[in-house]
Amino acid sequence: MLSIQSVTKTYGKKDNKFTALDNVSADFEAGTTNAIIGKSGSGKSTMLHIMTGLDRPSSGDIKDGEASIFQKTDTDKWRGENVGIIFQSFFLQGNDSVVENVALPLKLKGVNRRARNKQAMEALEQVGLLDKAKNKAKDLSGGQKQRVAIARALVTKPKILVADEPTGNLDSENGAAVENLLFELNQKLGTTLLIVTHDLDLAKRCSRVIFLKDGQVKKDIAKKHHDEGEKNA
C-alpha cells in the first residue's frame, strides 16, 4: 500500500509563497485503479512527482508499506524497483530501437543484455507490439509509442504504475486503446494503477477518483466495482 500522509508542498518564499499541495492524504491499496483529477494548476502533477519520489514534500510523508520512501537509503532505487511511470509525451529515445527503449530501465539497473532483452520482449508481448521490436521508436505512431512507454514502465515488474495524462497526446481511437490496455494490465498483473488526468471519462473508469482543486482534495470517491462506476456515470 502506498500512502500519502499530510503532504504539503510550497514553492517560493514569503510574499511569493505558493502552496501547490495543501495537507493532502490518501492511501492507495495494492491492485486498485485510481485517478487523480483536476484542472491545470490544481496540484496533480506535483502530487505525482512527490508520490514517485521525484520531488520532496515540504512537510508530510509518503510511505510504501511501513517505510518512508524518503527515509529509505535510496529513493531513486526504490522508484526504479517499485514504480513505472508513463508520460503524456511518451519520452522515448527516438533513435533507439523499440526493444532498447523498453529495456532501458533494466539497463540502468545493471541487468545484462541477454536478460534485459528477454524481459523487454515479454513486456512488448503484453502490449501487443512484439512485431515492432526492431523498429526505431521514432518511426511508430503516437498510440504505438505510448504502448512502448507502457511496456517500458512494466518491464521492471513494478508494484505501482503511474500514468501522467497517458492519452493526452493521442486521438480518441488510440487513446481508447491505450486506456483499455492500462485497465487490462491492471486486471492481469495486479499492478496498482495511478492515473493523473483532467479527462473525466478516463477517471470514471477507475475504482477511486480523487478530485484536486487548488492543492486540496475536494472529493474522494471510491467505488466497490468497476461496472458500478460505469453505471453511475
Binding site: T52, L54, D74, D76, K77, R79, G80, E81, I85, F87, F91, Q93, L104, P105, L108, K109, R152, T156
Partner: peptide
C-alpha cells in the same frame, strides 16, 4: 536535459 530527467524517473541514480 530531458533525457537525464527520464533516466532519473526510470530509476537511474545521480552517480549513474
Amino acid at each position: 536535459t530531458r533525457e537525464i530527467g527520464l533516466f532519473r524517473a526510470l530509476g537511474a541514480k545521480k552517480k549513474t
